[in-house]
Design a binder for these strands. Sequence first.
DNA 1: CTAGATGTTAAGGT
DNA 2: CACCTTAACATCTA
Length: 261
Amino acid sequence: MPELPEVETVRANLELECSGRVIRSVEVIDNGILDGCTTKELASFCRGRTIRGARRHGKQMFIELDQGGFITLHLGMTGDLIFYERKGDPDRHDRVLFNFTDGSRMAFRDMRKFGAIGYVTSIELFIRKKKLGPDALEIGGQEFAFRIGKHDSAIKTVLLDQKVVAGIGNLYADEVLYQSRIHPMRSAMELSAKEVETIFKNTRKVLLASIRVSSNFERLPKGFMLSVRGPGASCPRGNGKMASLKVNGRTTFYCPSCQTI
DNA sequence: CTAGATGTTAAGGT
DNA sequence: CACCTTAACATCTA
């Protein structure tokens, strides 16, 4: 589920479904995903409070409650929010349930349990504590170039570093570099100003395009590689077979013909 | 049975 | 200090 566009879709949906609902109780089925608080603390923080909306910073989500305060939510690799109009048996992978006073509820579902839920009183404090960089869609071109250019490692590694820019994950890093025709192993520091600007523009283009289609890769514009990304894929520009390698320990797909060193 | 999967973080080495 | 690789987390699927 989770890179910036997916989180944005979950956020928007949460806002639609839950704004105005009042939390009656919180059930923590698996406390392994709690981040910095106990079940009791989370439950008493949430009890009786109304959901006002939801915000996002990179892949991190914040559910805004009335009277200040936020539930923090990270989807990890497989996290998602599920809405139940009526109570029923939770799914096997539902880890936390938020029960609302009107009888509906929301589940945090996370098969692999890499997600995290907690609460804070200040988003800024949370971001500082986690050392997250600016959100990939909020940051400006100047700041982007400044931050990227400080690192002497592979451009893909730098794009994936949430402390540099927050929100780009493995799949979108590949797409951004493919759109930019830049090899993932190029040194970030040695890229020209023009190349960095291209990456900046394509970061926006790719993330916004994916948000527009709710991360349904099949519906992405022609020329995107995400819908075919995988072993044996062909370059959407018709330049032959895509190749793969490991960067930063992550599988990386690129077109050796479009993206030269 | 094995390898790998959209994320984050710690640990050890250069 | 900056960077790299590896492992770990937990679970499912190809």
